[in-house]
């Protein structure tokens, strides 16, 4: 793999991470799934200093996620939109150019819509979650697709209505 092709892959990976953020912000679940491989798996993890344990808050494959998204209209959810601010820190492309790993910082804000008194709460933006995306990619013909995403959050306080992919 030439330096030029590696640089192109790295750019593509940065681009797909930002595309994923936009798709998730827009609740464009189909658009997000298109960026993921059929073997895609997703998890939300956290370490709790309170109990000194790594915890899995959520895990699922593409099929399970799709089922979850299809059920969204029946969920008793908070409708406040989330806004993901992502910075790609590292991209490591394998020597054969077929896989890559990336670590990104993510800060998610919640723009209040629902609330105990939406008359007062709506319109305000609050910091919702901080953490990292730990992504793995499969690269076919120079085009990356997510094969896994671990969203490792620092929050242990998670209130109602936070059950869709971060």
């Amino acid at each position: 793999m030439t330096n030029e092709s590696q640089a192109n892959i790295e750019k593509s990976i940065e681009k797909i991470i930002y595309q994923a953020a936009l798709a998730l912000d827009d609740h464009n679940w189909d658009g997000w799934f298109e960026l993921c491989d059929t073997d895609f798996s997703y998890s939300i993890m956290s370490f709790s200093p309170e109990i000194n344990k790594n915890m899995t808050y959520f895990s699922g494959n593409k099929k399970e996620l799709k089922g979850l998204m299809d059920m969204l209209p029946k969920h008793n959810t908070d409708h406040s939109p989330l806004h993901r601010h992502t910075s790609v820190y590292t991209v490591d492309v394998a020597d054969d150019g077929k896989t890559a790993d990336a670590v990104s910082s993510v800060t998610i804000y919640q723009n209040m819509l629902d609330g105990i008194n939406s008359h007062i709460d709506s319109g305000e933006s609050r910091l919702f979650v901080i953490g990292k995306y730990i992504d793995k990619f499969k690269i076919t013909d120079g085009t990356p697709k997510f094969i896994s995403r671990e969203t490792k959050i620092d929050n242990r306080r998670l209130d109602k209505g936070s059950h869709w992919p971060l």
Partner: peptide
């Protein structure tokens, strides 16, 4: 157990409308 917990009690579980 973890999968059962996350699906039914975790913060990212699907919640039916009340």
């Amino acid at each position: 157990r973890s999968q059962f917990y996350n699906a039914n009690f975790g913060p990212f579980r699907a919640m039916e409308q009340h």
